[in-house]
C-alpha cells in the first residue's frame, strides 16, 4: 500500500506492506541508516526516532502508524550541515565511542530537551533509560546533554 509519511520535514509517498516496521522502512526504503537496529524488541533504543517530538523505538512502530505524524531521524537534526547542539556536545564531550547507540541516544536527548528545556541530571538519566550503550557507561553522554542545554558561558563555569 502507499503511505503518506512526513520524514525529516519532507512529505513522502512510500510503498509498504501492512506489517512493515517503521525502522525497516526508514532503513531499507529511505536509506536513513542512521536509524540503527540492535534488538528488534524495544530494549536497546538504537532505532529511536521522534514521532511528533516524542522519542519512540521505531522497531516497535508499524510504518502505517506513522501516517499523519512528523517523524524525525538523526539525519533530520543537522541544519544545513551544521550539527544540532546535542550532536556537537556528544562529539566534544566524549559521549561517542563506537557510535552505534549514538543516533538513538541523541534522539532520546532531543525529545527530552523539546519537552523540558532545562532538565535535572535525574531527568536526563531517566530519559535515557530505554537506550543501551555498551561503551561509555552513559556518564559522558549525560555530561554532553548537560553541556548542550547550558548557554556557553554557564557551560565553562559548570565544567
Amino acid at each position: 500500500m502507499k503511505l503518506d509519511l512526513n520524514i525529516n520535514g519532507e512529505d513522502l509517498e512510500v510503498d509498504v506492506s501492512g506489517s512493515e516496521l517503521l525502522s525497516d522502512v526508514l532503513r531499507s526504503k529511505l536509506d536513513l541508516t542512521g536509524v540503527k537496529e540492535g534488538c528488534r524488541e524495544g530494549e536497546c533504543g538504537a532505532c529511536t526516532v521522534l514521532m511528533d517530538d516524542m522519542a519512540v523505538n521505531s522497531c516497535l512502530v508499524l510504518a502505517i502508524q506513522a501516517t499523519g505524524r512528523r517523524i524525525v531521524t538523526v539525519e533530520g537534526l543537522a541544519q544545513q550541515d551544521a550539527l544540532d547542539k546535542i550532536q556537537e556536545a556528544f562529539v566534544e564531550h566524549g559521549a561517542i565511542q563506537c557510535g552505534y547507540c549514538s543516533p538513538g541516544m541523541i534522539m532520546a536527548a532531543k525529545a527530552l530537551l523539546l519537552r523540558e528545556p532545562r532538565p535535572t541530571r535525574h531527568a536526563i538519566r531517566d530519559a535515557l533509560a530505554g537506550n543501551l550503550c555498551r561503551c561509555t557507561g552513559y556518564l559522558n553522554i549525560i555530561k554532553a546533554i548537560e553541556a548542550a542545554l547550558l548557554p556557553p558561558r554557564d557551560r565553562e563555569e559548570r565544567l
Binding site: 531521524t73 550539527l83 566524549g94 561517542i96 563506537c98 541523541i106
Partner: peptide
C-alpha cells in the same frame, strides 16, 4: 589532551555507514 574522537561527526550525524548499512 582530550582531542575529540576522529569519527565523532559522522557518528553523531548518522552518516557513517557500518557494515549493515552498506548496499551493493
Amino acid at each position: 589532551t582530550s582531542l575529540p574522537i576522529s569519527s565523532g561527526t559522522p557518528k553523531a550525524s548518522g552518516s557513517l555507514a557500518y557494515t549493515g548499512d552498506m548496499k551493493l
